[in-house]
Design a protein around this nucleic acid. Structure first.
Length: 812
DNA sequence: GTTATGGTTAATC
DNA sequence: ATCCGACAAATTCGG
DNA sequence: CCGAATTTGTCGGATGATTAACCATAAC
């Protein structure tokens, strides 16, 4: 089956051009892989990671699944094994005909070359040809197991001269200096997708990057962005403006099918990319120029720039045009890129590491080192890249510097710069104060209120400019002009610039108190004028990441503080800035290791409308370097604590067909509470997290006999397409669910008429806890109880929550 | 043409 | 946001 | 003291409610 591999991959190609005479185009356009570092020296090659794993072919193929399951299924197609979901839509659509035809895109991709395809699947695959191509050398077959073992680093990285192979279709050779063929990238994606081992993924990506650095370094940035699925630095705020709905239309157009049939197939296959790939069968126009990383990236940017009248249609057209040029697995990944999720098991951290390793190995001296030394250099490169990235997380800046100066001197050219947002430090959820004490035992630590607002990283530059970034590095300056105006009043004399980590919280100016998150979220987001702000905000600062003109030290040069201890950073923050009541305050904090004191502090925070506490070490491991440990802080919320928090027993009345990892099961369910007076079930939320895979499977099975064709007359629900379930159930089971809060809902119906005349109540952060077999549906939490829970959480009367009364609450 | 309504998307948590 | 699962890394255990 | 067993930490990807912005289209 893999004939081709041998021929092409086995040999060392001259650096330069690889084109490959490969015929077999028609054959279902097999993607082929791609990049292989060719071991130049005798080192002979640690064979690059080949993912030869003996894994059984994954059927649904496209998604990695727990090994356990794979094993079980062994030779049964996994799909078959999953309880098939009743799917009205699908059923219906099925007559559309085409749906069935496209044999599910045989993605075989991941399928290992491994033989052992299950019966049915086997045929498809076989036919499809699985040329599994691996990225290793010829003999890969034999050596199979990965050497990757230890640290030596991902195997593949060994050989010095990287080489790349274009894959099959002679249509896309990769020539030095020319743009990287998109097919090459996709081939790497296929390899990555075939495994769950991170080191292996890393090594495949390293191979690709090495080749790119060697052959077409100008494409490195684009490759990196495509790998992490972005079209530029986050702070530039570029968005594709393309969602599933548009994509489905585009795919339908491109394939000459109707939207309904595409949707039906999507439900069945669980991945729109796969659906689109099956287009491969209709073979694309010859004239279409092969896509390159550069052209695809440019196209994505172009799509993001489309706006205005008929922009939707223009986007669809643009996407369709791209799709038509796709062959092999390109369509699959292109669609997934547009969806914003590659779902390959690859994301930022892995990309960063691969980049570092590739950079190291692209240095011929390093590549030639004995493996131990080489591994050490790779580790050093990794550490440097991480460090630099935590100070200035911008590929636009790092990659050019990396290419020009190499990783050793990267830090001299890339350093923290006010105006460029840092990745925020995150917190790890903690179940109890006891757990906190355990973790931080023997270390100095401090507690702060966890405010319920929006993360805000405030940069004040020397030139007076103030910029605010969100948790995801989006520029919030247009949303908070009021904050920007007040910031100049904050620094003490001598403080010229700084970067602060804060939480922006909705603030009741009259009552001088904090308002709930739901109020904050109603703030306008774009081009806000200070004069017509409806929701005032108070900033609660809790960390200082950069300071110029350090008070008291006379220091005059720009000073990044991220490597300082929290203790020091906080001292500097207190020394350098002034609080302004109701506008700019420091997060309330307390340092103690006494459990009772901390417990009291926690209780107070909740009473004060906060979510709980953040707990942070003051000295040891207290630097602000997300790359070191992005979740180095702990958070304690009352709803994490067992037995505390809002827990409800709700009835399952509907299910949603799962996607990706959950293909073949329900990905989520619709829950309702019981209204005793009206004798009806009122929706309160959907739920999609908290269950193990086993439970997911059990649930799918259990509800099978309870599926009903339509909602019961005594179900109160919204017909909003986001709420209406794919499948309805009769009331059969009660689940215990936990939530952080209750909110007024625009779509759910629980307790409608009690808190708000027209709106129901819903849950914030709902998650599945367990099945309540001891309760029948009519013993579920009642609407009255829901209403009571809602009332009891507003200790501090908030006006904003009730939209009806919202009018009276602005002004001051 | 302008306005109201509805659907989609991306952003926050 | 919460949560789960696969890996990798770190730590402890047993001889 | 080393290798095996166990625990802890990282990372990636499923999924939640809610809102403003934007666009398409219907209503006027």
């Amino acid at each position: 089956m893999s004939g081709k591999r041998q021929a092409t991959l086995g040999q060392v190609l001259p650096t330069g051009t690889w084109s490959e005479p490969d015929p077999a185009p028609e054959a279902a356009a097999e993607p082929t892989p791609a990049v292989t570092p060719v071991p130049a020296d005798a080192e002979a090659a640690l064979p690059p990671a080949d993912k030869e794993k003996p894994t059984v072919p994954t059927p649904a193929s496209l998604f990695r699944r727990p090994k356990r399951r794979i094993v079980e299924s062994d030779d049964e197609p996994e799909l078959a094994q999953k309880p098939s979901l009743p799917n009205p839509k699908a059923a219906k659509a099925s007559d559309d005909g085409p749906a069935s035809t496209p044999a599910p895109a045989r993605a075989d991709a991941p399928a290992q070359g491994k033989p052992k395809p299950s019966p049915k699947q086997a045929k498809k695959k076989a036919a499809g040809k699985a040329s599994k191509s691996k990225s290793n050398e010829a003999e890969d077959d034999s050596d199979s197991d990965s050497p990757k073992g230890s640290s030596a680093g991902p195997s593949s990285s060994s050989g010095p001269a990287p080489a790349a192979q274009s894959s099959d279709s002679g249509s896309s050779p990769w020539t030095r200096g020319q743009p990287v063929p998109y097919k090459t990238l996709c081939a790497t994606f296929e390899l990555i997708q075939a495994t769950t081992k991170r080191l292996e993924i890393q090594s495949h990506l390293t191979d690709l990057f090495r080749s790119v650095i060697d052959l077409s370094p100008q494409c490195l940035i684009e490759c990196v962005y495509l790998c992490i699925n972005r079209i530029g630095p986050e702070y530039e705020g570029k968005e594709l403006g393309v969602g599933e709905s548009l994509l489905v239309k585009a795919v339908a157009n491109a394939m000459g099918r109707d939207v309904k049939s595409i949707k039906a197939e999507l439900d069945q296959v669980g991945d729109l990319g796969t659906v689109a790939q099956s287009k491969g069968h209709q073979k694309t126009i010859f004239s279409a120029k092969p896509l390159t990383v550069t052209s695809v990236f440019a196209a994505l940017k172009a799509i993001s720039n489309i706006s205005g009248q008929s922009s939707q249609q223009r986007k669809i057209d643009a996407i369709q045009k791209l799709l038509v040029s796709c062959s092999g697995s390109e369509a699959k990944f292109l669609i997934r890129s547009l969806e914003g999720k590659l779902r390959i098991g690859l994301a930022e951290q892995t990309v960063l590491m691969s980049l570092a390793h590739a950079a190291a190995l692209s240095d011929s001296k390093i590549a030639a080192m004995p493996s131990e030394k080489r591994a050490a250099m790779m580790a050093e490169a990794a550490a440097k890249i991480k460090q630099v990235y935590s100070a200035i997380p911008s590929y636009d800046l790092i990659i050019p510097a990396l290419l020009e100066y190499g990783f050793q001197h990267l830090e001299d050219h890339c350093h923290m710069t006010p105006g460029i947002p840092l990745k925020p430090m995150l917190a790890h959820p903690t179940k109890s104060l006891t757990e906190v004490l355990d973790r931080f035992e023997g270390m100095a630590f401090t507690c702060e209120y966890k405010y319920d607002g929006e993360r805000a990283q405030i940069h004040k530059l020397e030139n007076g400019t103030v910029v605010i970034y969100s948790r995801n590095s989006e520029n919030l300056s247009g949303k908070y002009p009021d904050i920007i105006e007040r910031i100049p009043n904050v620094p003490k004399p001598g403080v010229k610039s700084f970067v602060l980590d804060c939480e922006a919280v909705a603030w009741d100016v009259k009552k001088q108190c904090i308002l709930p998150f739901q109020v904050l979220s109603t703030r306008k987001r774009k081009d806000v004028q200070t004069t017509d702000i409806q929701v005032q905000v108070c900033i609660f600062a809790f960390d200082l990441l950069f300071l110029n003109g350090e008070v008291g030290t006379g220091l005059d040069c720009a000073k990044p503080l991220i490597t300082e201890t929290l203790k020091r950073r906080r001292e500097l923050m207190y020394e350098s800035l002034n609080e302004i009541e109701g506008q700019f305050q420091f997060a309330k904090s307390m340092t103690s290791s006494n459990v009772e004191e901390i417990q009291t502090f926690l209780d107070d925070s909740v009473v004060g409308n906060c979510e709980g506490l953040m707990v942070k070490t003051l000295e040891k491991d207290s630097s602000y370097e997300p790359s070191k440990r992005s979740r180095n802080w702990l958070k304690v919320k009352k709803d994490y604590v067992n037995g505390l928090g809002d827990s409800l027993d709700l009835v399952v009345i509907g299910g949603y067909i799962g996607r990706g990892k959950r293909t073949g099961w329900y990905g989520g369910y619709l829950l309702a509470c019981y209204d005793e007076d009206r004798e009806e079930y009122q929706t309160i939320c959907k739920i999609g997290t908290g269950f193990s895979e086993d439970q997911l499977a059990e649930h799918a099975e259990l509800f099978k006999p309870h599926v009903i064709p339509g909602p019961k007359p005594y179900y109160k629900y919204s017909d909003n397409p986001n709420v209406r379930p794919d499948v309805w159930f009769e009331p059969a089971q009660v689940w215990e669910v936990k939530a952080a809060d209750l909110s007024i809902s625009p779509v759910h119906k629980a307790a409608t008429g009690t808190i708000d005349p027209n709106k129901g109540i819903s849950l914030r952060f709902p998650r599945f806890i367990r099945v309540r077999d001891d309760k029948s549906p009519d013993q579920a939490t009642t609407a009255a109880q829901v209403a009571e829970m809602y009332r009891s959480q507003n200790i501090n009367p908030i006006k904003g929550t009730n939209m009806g009364a919202a009018d009276d609450d602005f002004e001051y």
